[in-house]
Write a protein that binds this DNA or RNA. Sequence first.
RNA 1: GUGGAUGUAGCUUAGUUGGUUAAAGCGCCGGUUUGUGGCACCGGAGACCGUGGGUUCGAGUCCCAUCUUCCACCCCA
Length: 437
Amino acid sequence: MAEINRAVKGTNDILPDKSYKYRFVEEKMLETAALYGFREIRVPVFEHTEVFSRNVGEDTDVVQKEMYTFEDKGGRSITLRPELTAGVVRSVIENGVIAGALPAKVCYIGGCYRYEKPQAGRLREFHQFGVECFGAQCPSADAEIIALARQILLTLGVKDISLKINSIGCEKCRSDYVNALRDYFSKYKSDLCGTCNDRLDRNPLRILDCKSPVCSEIAAKAPVITDYLCDDCKAHFSSVKENLTAQGILFEVDPHIVRGLDYYTKTVFEFVSGDIGAQSTVCGGGRYDGLVSKMGGKDTPALGFGLGIERLMLLLEKTGATLPEDKKCVLYVAAMDDKSQIAAGKICSLVRNEGYEALCDLCGRGLKSQLKYADKIGAKYSIVLGENELNSGKVVIKNMKTGNTHECDIGDIPDKITDLNLKEALVSLEDSVLGNG
RNA sequence: GUGGAUGUAGCUUAGUUGGUUAAAGCGCCGGUUUGUGGCACCGGAGACCGUGGGUUCGAGUCCCAUCUUCCACCCCA
């Protein structure tokens, strides 16, 4: 196929046979977030480049090599958002959201864009669900958003996912720690791998994360952040842990988790799965107390997380979590001739007015083909309309699954369908309550 | 950006040491005496074999390049 007719590298089409699952998952996430007081915010897909470059961090990989940046016709430097936090923070400052009642809680779903080499669980256009909470400095806030992330994952049926948490301290104690790390790793400079030598200057925290056996052996004996936390950060972290434990949330303290975006402070966390390959972080987040003031807002503590929707879907598929079926057509009206076809269209519109999906032939097909089609799309009921029906004013409604038939007047079809549907819903409700399947 | 693998109808694949009109299953469309779907049977449409070069009398099969997808690194969700 010609390249022009293909989706751009790293992008994905979601077709109707899957889109309903995404919609279900997204609605569930918004609903669950609402239980914690988070309300949806919608912000632009692109921002002034500086919104990201300054706040995500000038020398993070995301800013250095992954942004889709271009100049618009007015000469502005514009960037497609590589993540949502920076844009949301910009918005809540600009619109005075954080000048109102605090904490202010917002959540969102949206596409993000990063120019990376695609692989499973990593796309150039991907979607994130996330939440941000502004104005809450208490450790209970950290525990609360972790609880929310966990509840979302559990509600959707995710299994075998582990929570890792860490504290990377505030600006002050972190810089002490980074210096200590740099001193320590400098002694092993010649043993460290190439990338870790780069990291020694740029961000020694990342060396802790290196998978090379030599580096991880050296890293194992490196100074630990918890020894460098100031009293305030130390107390905060232990209270976060206490809150989590009190809520029965299992976690593992992993001093090696270090987020790659510059704005994080204190608590950072990840939900990691072993089922979806190398891109195993499904959800990641933490506190970013300095970002709001850095972006020109009033000094406001803040925290949040982002959850990769494609990775989550991958995980749900791999672990066989069950999602509800898509809604099916309720009534198919098959017609024998032109006159019946017109009547079929009218019946469909009446049934649709009652809120049920109703379809009829649009391809000029014969009766048999029409019914085959009704079967393929999984229509619940069908009727056949011909001379006989139009003359007698009576039709037979057939349940396509059971084969049961019900007779009624043509004019009563919408009522009859409503009736049958309600009865059927009642029966399946009884079945599920009584355990009849 | 680095390394490795893949690429044949909508989907899953077959295609023998390069040799005539590229094969099958599923799916799709139609039919099996004209008023009832699912099963069965019959028939049909649909692929310039990812793309572009090259080697050859001849290439889906060999070589090169390029793109896509996948796996790992990097990084992140």
